Amino acid sequence: MRLATFNLLHGRSLTDGLVDPDRLAAAIGALDADVLALQEVDRDQRRSGNLDLTAIAARALDAPHHRFAAAVVGTPGERFRPLRHDDDGHGEPCYGIGLISRHPVRSWQVTRLKPAPVRSPVYVPGPRGGLILLHDEPRVVLAAVLDTPHGPLTVAATHLSFVPGWNARQLRQTVRALRALPGPRVLLGDLNLPAG
């Protein structure tokens, strides 16, 4: 079984900054993953052509089981709001994570993580970049219990905070949430943590 994680950067190419659904599908198809976790995923965002990037990725892998979990409604860095209860922001631009599986999904679980309560310095490259103070945004964990040829497997996707210490706290919350699901368990994503 091949597991992969991919930070989509809203579907933008690192070479020219454009969002090209065919190029994105080709890159994802080349991964040939049985299970794929996606971070920085747009759905219905003007900046990414109002596309559903999770659905594009699922088609590229010929994977019938997929789900997008919005972390926020709106566009991070511009204007957004956290989701309320079971609100999934449908019909509005959303930003979050995705999870795709070629194996059948028994159940899905969404766990919401609060943003850091303080602004944190982040280095932004480029001519107008530098060290800037940013507000964190809410985060989300999307878990699926899969039926695989080897038995049940829980796979989760997340993108933790960039704020040092707060991301470790979110990781502990994530581990607690996953303990309620069948083992073995695998966590995929952009954890924003040092290797140690």
Rank of each mutant, 00 (worst) to 15 (best):
K114E: 15
L153N: 09
L99K: 10
L181Y: 12
W166E: 03
A37E: 05
W108N: 07
Q109I: 10
L38I: 04
H10P: 04
L8F: 01
P93S: 07
L187I: 00
A55W: 11
R59Q: 13
D136V: 00
P117F: 00
R119M: 14
A55H: 13
E92W: 12
C94H: 03
L193T: 07
L38P: 10
G11P: 01
A55I: 05
D16M: 02
L31D: 03
V186A: 04
L142I: 06
G77D: 10
T111F: 12
L160S: 05
W166N: 04
G126E: 12
S101Y: 07
A26T: 12
R172A: 15
W166A: 02
D20V: 00
V145P: 03
W108S: 01
G130E: 14
P127A: 15
L188D: 02
V19T: 04
H150R: 14
V72N: 04
L9Y: 12
P152E: 15
V19G: 00
L113H: 00
Y95N: 02
R43P: 01
S120I: 15
H10V: 09
L51S: 08
Y123R: 15
A69S: 11
L8M: 10
N167I: 01
Q170A: 11
P138N: 07
R81D: 05
A177F: 13
T158R: 07
A58G: 01
H135M: 08
A143I: 02
G151L: 03
H159M: 08
L142N: 02
V141P: 09
R46M: 09
R46V: 12
A168V: 11
G98E: 04
A180N: 13
L31S: 04
R67D: 09
R47V: 00
G129I: 08
G196N: 14
E40A: 07
V35Y: 00
P117I: 02
V141M: 03
R139Y: 00
V72G: 05
P117S: 06
P104E: 04
L99R: 09
G189P: 07
A26H: 05
P76R: 06
R46C: 08
V105D: 10
G98K: 08
R119A: 15
A33D: 03
N167M: 08
P104I: 02
A4F: 03
L24T: 02
H10Y: 10
R139E: 05
G96Q: 00
V19Y: 06
A63Q: 11
I56F: 01
A27G: 09
E137N: 11
A58S: 12
V175R: 14
